[in-house]
Design a protein around this nucleic acid. Structure first.
Lengths: 210, 210, 210, 210
DNA sequence: ACGTAATCGAGACGGTACGTCGTGTCTTACA
DNA sequence: TGTAAGACACGACGTACCGTCTCGATTACGT
């Protein structure tokens, strides 16, 4: 019978209150000042915590931001099971639309922006935020190809790059509206370009765009 | 009849030699050390220039990088005239492919990344780098719609968001290969999803993808 | 018959208007900001003059200040002739009292203060401001010694160091009131300590001090 | 019963080693280069210390110089007790003579010079360096007045302004020798001008001056 | 009247030091 | 042992002046 997980090591245990204070002040400072003006000094001060405590548990400020960000958005992550793949993708795109146009949108921009000069941050972001759902979607698309519903000369990854690429392009570069109409138009074009039997496309459902 | 633009303002004129030295050292340091480790102090030192000279003409290090970048790639900017729109877009996509996979790729990432916390910079980047060609492409697409060659329920801007979005998604977020095969697959899906008479698509030209 | 002094050299002659503008702005900035915050840049700007014009005619900012200061106070310089030496000294001391307690007092402090780290400035100040009257006073004292009115074991310079030293001590270090009462008390002590026949002292004229 | 002064404040205590290194390099650079060419940057570099550490504890370079100066000369500060007031003053004047003509003389000039544009610095200098001994001397003089040994129409402060004024005048303005002969001549004149019964003066002890 | 020549304003230039801020490390006392 | 406080060496920041330089414009003089 093994001793249970939290083996009490000698000395004072880690203060969970400090951990949460740090994550919260990181997020607050992030959307108040942006990533550039985000300093470990300021995080520690606002959290009422010694700098050493921050450095003991996180290597970079990017790690803190990542942990804080994921704690906020993790719940909405998964595809609900059982939908036909096209509906699943369209619905997922709409969920992303909602997040991008919420106040988390700029935070995502900030993190990706910072990630351009800190590879480790970007990798973490990709691994923890993008890849999990992408893996599910990739699997669904592959199954559709296998069932003969999708063209077999287009790798699923390219479909996904198109769908999400358009969204991120608007979020990061064009800084333009990301709404239901946009998501549906994107889905229409990609689906029509990908589906084997073009008549199967649900394009007709969205007759007009604003 | 002399052009009157270069009306000589009073005082010593700007040294073009310094300007070029600064842009060059910025680019050199950028791909040696990365954007994070790029300091204005170092740029000035390497260029053999006073810091004040840098600050006199540029607000941020990102502005320097952008100007250096544009000076390098500006020439390849335009669509050659006279091609059918589909060829023109495909070729343009290939030209972008070449730039993104060159050592200018990370530079673009850097500028967009910095632009996430400096709206003015991003706006300049968009205006000077993206919009000019996008305007040409938009016009071509609109003409194709008018001629009845493209679906009229998809605004040209969405086509372009799809095409370029996929490219930038790979450049900025997935950090994945951006090559001819990728560009062609992207073009195939989008064209097939956009062209009115599907038989017109040139998809058959690229029968297989790695 | 020699050509007179201002041999007109070829080229544009020096602008006297600029010269005066520079001296004036130097003095103004001096008592507004003090010597430390006095920059050639600011002098030139306030005078509406190019920096090069300043550098062409003066080596240091101290030179400018000196020229400007002397132009202001030069007139009050001399001992009036014909007074008995004791009256002459006492009156001169009162004249200095008046200058020290005017708004020129702090300017003098400023110049001497700056002179502590710029020997050339102090030397100019001494030569142009202090020494001329001191020479007259020294001569008067020596004549009094020769006439047997003053002790012959005290060099005149020491008398003068005592008289003026006390004044400058208050001006520079104690920052205390410098008024008629102070000047007279100083004169009394020094005269009584210096005069051969002590009964000759005019001490009794000033029976009480505030 | 422990003294309670050094109540240990939280955080790392101030490094006395850094403090001393800074004071030493300040003094060294001061007499190598002079006050004008003395930069905080250089002090920090020579002391092997971060600039921030200097700025944390001192406002101006003059403050550093003053603290260094006081640390050097503090020990010689006090009047030895039990001497007759005239001897005490004469001996004290000789001690000052020695300091003024040492390499500390210019340092004093430096601090007073800087103090002309920074009142706070001058006040500190006065309070810490001049006033303590002056208070002792003032008391002695007042007692001599009360005993009827000194004239009662001359406030002690004026005696002291004369004695020290002459010394500082030579130090700051005339930049002339400050030696035993000068000090004794000064003392003679002032004593003879101040003592009630003139025969009590020790003037005769110094019959001739160079 | 017309070149020659020095001075003028303006202001950019390569530099140096400024005083501030944030980094990541350290040294305390306390919990 | 973990924590808050905070001092430390370091290095870049962005600013202010330094003294020098190049401009075009101005103003005299000697042709």
């Amino acid at each position: 019978m093994p001793t249970c997980k939290p083996i009490q090591r000698p000395g004072r245990p880690r203060s969970n209150q400090s951990r949460e204070a740090i994550l919260n002040s990181a997020l607050e400072l992030l959307d108040q000042e942006g990533f550039a003006a985000l300093s470990i000094e300021a995080i520690a001060a606002r959290a009422g915590v010694g700098k050493a405590t921050v450095y003991r548990w996180w290597k970079h400020k990017a790690e803190i931001v990542m942990e804080a960000f994921l704690a906020k958005v993790q719940p909405e992550l998964d595809f609900p099971p059982g939908e036909p793949f096209e509906d699943a993708l369209r619905n997922q795109l709409l969920r992303v639309t909602r997040i991008f146009s919420s106040k988390m949108g700029p935070v995502i921009g900030t993190v990706i922006g910072a990630g351009q000069s800190e590879p480790e941050l970007l990798r973490d972001f990709y691994k923890n935020w993008i890849e999990p759902r992408r893996a599910q979607a990739r699997k669904m698309l592959q199954e559709a190809v296998d069932r003969g519903e999708l063209r077999d000369d287009i790798p699923p990854d390219i479909i996904l790059d198109l769908l999400y690429g358009a969204m991120y392009f608007r979020l990061l570069i064009r800084k333009d509206r990301i709404d239901r109409a946009f998501a549906e138009a994107v889905a229409n074009v990609v689906m029509d370009g990908s589906i084997r039997n073009q008549k199967a496309s649900k394009r007709s459902k969205v007759p007009s765009l604003a």
